[in-house]
Nucleic acid binder design. Structure first.
Lengths: 227, 227
DNA sequence: GACGGTCTGTACGGTAACGCACTCAATACA
DNA sequence: TGTATTGAGTGCGTTACCGTACAGACCGTC
């Protein structure tokens, strides 16, 4: 129930930040920021999680990254740019703490450890972006889907979450029916089970084997830099 | 013949940095840094330019971004992480100034404008990464090739540069013969001309029309934030 | 219990890539 | 001058997607 960025900094700094935070509910599907528009707040997810999504002309959306309790939405604020580089959408309902951009920027000066922590997190996010780009290009739907389910599983607190094929299609940037086929195959291998948007992870190790190596690569990067 | 990051900061700061810089030749094809390995130097390209390239298992390389005199290789050093997130390869021979990671980090504390400048540059690079990822996924080879030639044209000082189909294939992450076809079409439209690796831009406006909108989107982002 | 909405399964033809392989032309070198 | 190398053109069958469409299954609700 805690955010790892906040729990990893000294209590003096944490209290300063928490002083300016308010608790909010992350409602599934709500858009927290749009590309090129100013951030009103930065979000520290507690139980919910957030998708970073790129929109390109008439195409379906495409997910570039996922932010759960291990991170923060709005890291680029530390670069002094107030505009969001990527759209963010709530992908798992839950709650989060949020702080206004202004307060965050002000507290950054007083909180060197928070600064360090967010620096490293931004680095990881960048590394993830390039890995994901190559993954999207070279890897097939099924391994990508498996990877994506694992990332979601890591951030959801349960083996069970709500996700329709339609929604998954918009994350991987593919047709809905492409997901149906890939998910059907994963189900036949008894790795997952789903009915009408309710997905259950049955065999996590099996899913890891079915996923592309990008899953391991990205989580390694996380654990090395963020512990 | 100048680097825009350096020319955009006050002369006091510029001189401090230049004091620690040495001039180096960028040799075509040489690898300046590898993923996950420490940066020895940061590079400010003057006439040469550098490709950011992701390698994934047995697949061909895939280019994520291009750094010319408008930028710097090694921006992520400002995050306090010394490891390179992406491999960098010299794509256009020329020269550059370079500074050791240690000196750069030391000077950053003394040079607030350099800091600000690099912050903004890192932001642009991030925005570019996500745009490029979607571009690679959704757009076809020909528009991507056109975009890529334009980006190169912007950074090369001439209408004419050396690039084999093989090399281009490794930038776009596609087959060599896929490039042959796409480039052949561009040539038939009299937008470019090439023989044995020597490419000439004949009709820049036409190329811009043939490119996907990502070219415009990324250059807009550059000009807005870096002027 | 009938009805409309949502979600899933499946099928169809189409296509932009793929891997592979082979030829031909230009250059470099001995 | 002959030979090797490099780069470009081309074609072949294959494949993983695409867009579209439709039917069935489950759900809430009136």
């Amino acid at each position: 129930m805690t955010n790892h960025i906040l729990s990893g900094i000294p209590s003096r700094e944490r209290n300063r930040v928490l002083n300016h935070c308010e608790s909010v509910e992350l409602v599934f599907g709500s858009v927290l920021c749009k590309t090129d528009q100013p951030y009103s707040h930065a979000y520290f997810p507690l139980t919910g999680f957030i998708s970073l999504v790129t929109l390109l002309d008439a195409h379906r959306p495409l997910e570039m990254g996922l932010i759960g309790s291990e991170g923060m939405l709005g890291v680029t604020l530390i670069l002094g740019v107030r505009k969001a580089p990527i759209r963010a959408v709530v992908q798992g309902a839950g709650n989060a703490l949020r702080i206004t951009s202004t307060h965050l920027l002000r507290e950054l000066h007083e909180c060197p450890e928070l600064q360090r922590s967010l620096n490293r997190y931004l680095y990881v996010l960048m590394a993830q972006l390039s890995q994901t780009a190559a993954c999207i290009h070279f890897h097939e739907i099924q391994p990508r889907l498996a990877r994506w389910l694992l990332m979601t599983h890591d951030r959801a607190q349960a083996d069970h979450f709500h996700l329709t094929h339609e929604f998954l299609a918009d994350m991987l940037g593919v047709r809905r029916s492409g997901i149906t086929v890939a998910a059907g195959e994963l189900q036949q291998k008894h790795l997952i089970r789903y009915t009408r948007g309710e997905i259950t992870i049955l065999d996590r190790a099996g899913l890891e084997a079915a996923a592309c190596e990008c899953y391991g690569a990205v989580t390694d990067c996380y654990s090395k830099l963020l512990g």
